[in-house]
Simulated scan of single mutants.
Amino acid sequence: MSANTLSTAPVRDRGGVQLPAPGTWAIDPGHADVAFVGRHMVFTKVRGRFADVSGAVRVADDPGESQLEVVIGMSSVESGLRARDEHLRSAELFDVEQFPTATFRSVTVDWAGTAGTVTGDLTIHGVTRRVPLTVVYEGYAKDPWGGERAVFSASTTVNREDFGLTWNVALEAGGLLVSKEISIEISVETVLQR
């Protein structure tokens, strides 16, 4: 069965584990959280998220042949502080006028049970790097409107300078104003397309 062929059931048993049925599971933008965490002045964690997220998981009969594609609207960044959000959107950092989207496209999937590593090409600020995501299938639910939903979470850590995001300020006592290492945390609901 190919990734484009739908099963009659939204989930299936594979080796004693319940997984989403083969097919295209579109990301629900209203229930997608793509967040990042960096450090400010070495110690303080600063969190941000993107509200504009779209894409799909194309689940194959063999989970290792599945595909993931995500598009993020970079101007949708929210960190809880308007001035910081404006700086993130500026040419010093995301430069959303020149680079309005970031993308992730899977290249390989190594899957066992309900978790795996999805390695793909992450493009931010016009720079593409291969990045591994640790992905967990969290479960399935039918929504009140008849939609079939599969929930996934994922995480990774990147060095923002690898993507050309090099703006920073050296601190008098040592260290940098903004950490180079950024954690990315993802939680998405996907809806089976019929």
Rank of each mutant, 00 (worst) to 15 (best):
T8G: 12
P10A: 00
V11G: 12
V11M: 07
D13A: 07
G16P: 13
V17T: 12
V17N: 00
A21M: 14
A21T: 13
P22F: 08
P22Q: 14
G23F: 08
T24S: 15
I27H: 06
H31R: 06
A32Q: 05
A32K: 07
F36K: 04
R39W: 00
V42A: 13
F43M: 12
T44K: 01
F50Y: 11
D52I: 02
V57E: 05
A60E: 02
P63G: 05
G73P: 02
M74A: 04
S76F: 06
S79N: 09
L81D: 03
R82A: 15
D85I: 01
D85W: 10
A91N: 10
E92Y: 09
F94N: 06
F94G: 01
V96M: 04
V96Y: 10
Q98P: 10
Q98T: 15
Q98I: 12
F99H: 15
T101V: 11
T101P: 02
A102H: 13
F104E: 10
F104Y: 06
V107C: 11
V109Q: 08
A112L: 07
T117Y: 00
V118K: 02
V118D: 10
D121R: 13
L122Y: 07
T123R: 08
I124C: 05
G126F: 03
V135M: 09
V136A: 09
V136M: 04
V136R: 05
A141W: 02
K142E: 13
G146Q: 07
G146C: 03
E148P: 02
F152P: 04
S153M: 12
S153Y: 05
S155T: 04
V158M: 04
N159G: 15
E161P: 06
F163T: 05
N168C: 07
L171R: 13
L171E: 10
E172W: 13
E172N: 12
G175W: 01
L177G: 12
V178T: 11
E181F: 09
I182E: 07
I186R: 08
